[in-house]
Amino acid sequence: MKTPRINRAEAEVIALKALGFLASEPERLSRFLTLSGVEVADIGTVAENPDFLAGLLNHLLQDESLLLTFTAEQELDPRVPALAAEALAGRAGA
C-alpha cells in the first residue's frame, strides 16, 4: 500500500476533524483537555496553533483504540494522523 502524502493544509483539516471527534463525546474531550492543560474556553484560540493540532493528533496516536475509531469514522488510512502530525510539526509536507 502506497504511503499517503499530507501537506500542511490537509493536516490542519485532519486535526480539526480529530478535535470534532474528541468533542463528540464529553469523556474523550475531558481526558484530552486534562492531559493537555487546555481549558474549554481556550479551544477556539489554540485550535489555530499548529503545535496544539499536532499534539491533539499525537494524543490520538497514543491510544490505538481511539485512533482506530477516529480513522474508521473518517474513512482514513490509520497512518494519516501520524503523517498529519509530522506535517504540522514542520517535518513533512509543504
Rank of each mutant, 00 (worst) to 15 (best):
L83M: 07
G37K: 00
E39V: 09
A89I: 00
A89C: 01
R5P: 00
V46M: 04
L66C: 09
E64S: 14
K2Q: 03
L35R: 05
A47E: 14
A9Y: 08
T45C: 01
A94E: 06
D51K: 14
F32N: 04
I14A: 09
P26D: 09
E27Q: 12
E12V: 13
V40R: 07
E39I: 02
L83V: 03
V46S: 08
P78Y: 06
V80F: 09
E12W: 07
L60V: 11
M1C: 02
D63R: 15
A18C: 08
L66K: 14
G44Q: 03
E27L: 14
N58M: 09
I43H: 07
E86I: 00
P4K: 03
G20R: 10
E48I: 08
D63Q: 14
P4N: 03
R28H: 09
A89G: 01
L29M: 15
V80I: 15
L22V: 02
A15R: 05
N49S: 10
I14S: 01
E64N: 14
T45D: 07
A84I: 08
R79K: 10
E10T: 12
G55Y: 10
A92V: 09
R5C: 03
V46N: 00
D77M: 12
A23N: 10
L76F: 15
T71G: 02
E39G: 12
D63C: 11
Q62T: 12
A23L: 11
L57S: 05
D63E: 15
D77L: 08
S36Q: 03
E64H: 15
N58E: 14
D42K: 12
D63A: 15
L67K: 12
S24V: 03
E75L: 02
E27T: 13
I43W: 01
F70T: 01
R31K: 08
R8A: 11
L19S: 11
F21L: 05
G90H: 08
I14Y: 08
H59W: 12
R28W: 07
L19R: 10
E27G: 03
F32Y: 12
A72F: 10
S65M: 10
T3I: 15
E39R: 14
P50E: 13
D77N: 10
G20W: 07
I43P: 00
P50C: 14
G93L: 08
D51H: 07
R8V: 15
E73S: 10
L53I: 13
P81D: 06
V38S: 04
G93S: 01
V80M: 13
E27A: 12
F70P: 02
I14P: 05
A72L: 13
S65K: 11
A47K: 14
V46H: 06
E64W: 13
G44R: 00
A94R: 13
T71W: 13
E25H: 11
A23C: 08
T71V: 12
P50G: 11
G55H: 12
L56K: 14
N7I: 10
D42W: 00
R31D: 12
N49K: 05
R5V: 15
R91Y: 07
F52C: 00
L57P: 00
V13C: 00
D77V: 07
S30N: 05
T34F: 13
A85R: 08
I43D: 06
A54G: 01
A82S: 15
G93R: 08
D77Y: 12
Q74W: 13
F52K: 00
L19D: 00
L88Y: 11
A89S: 06
G20L: 06
L53Y: 14
I14G: 01
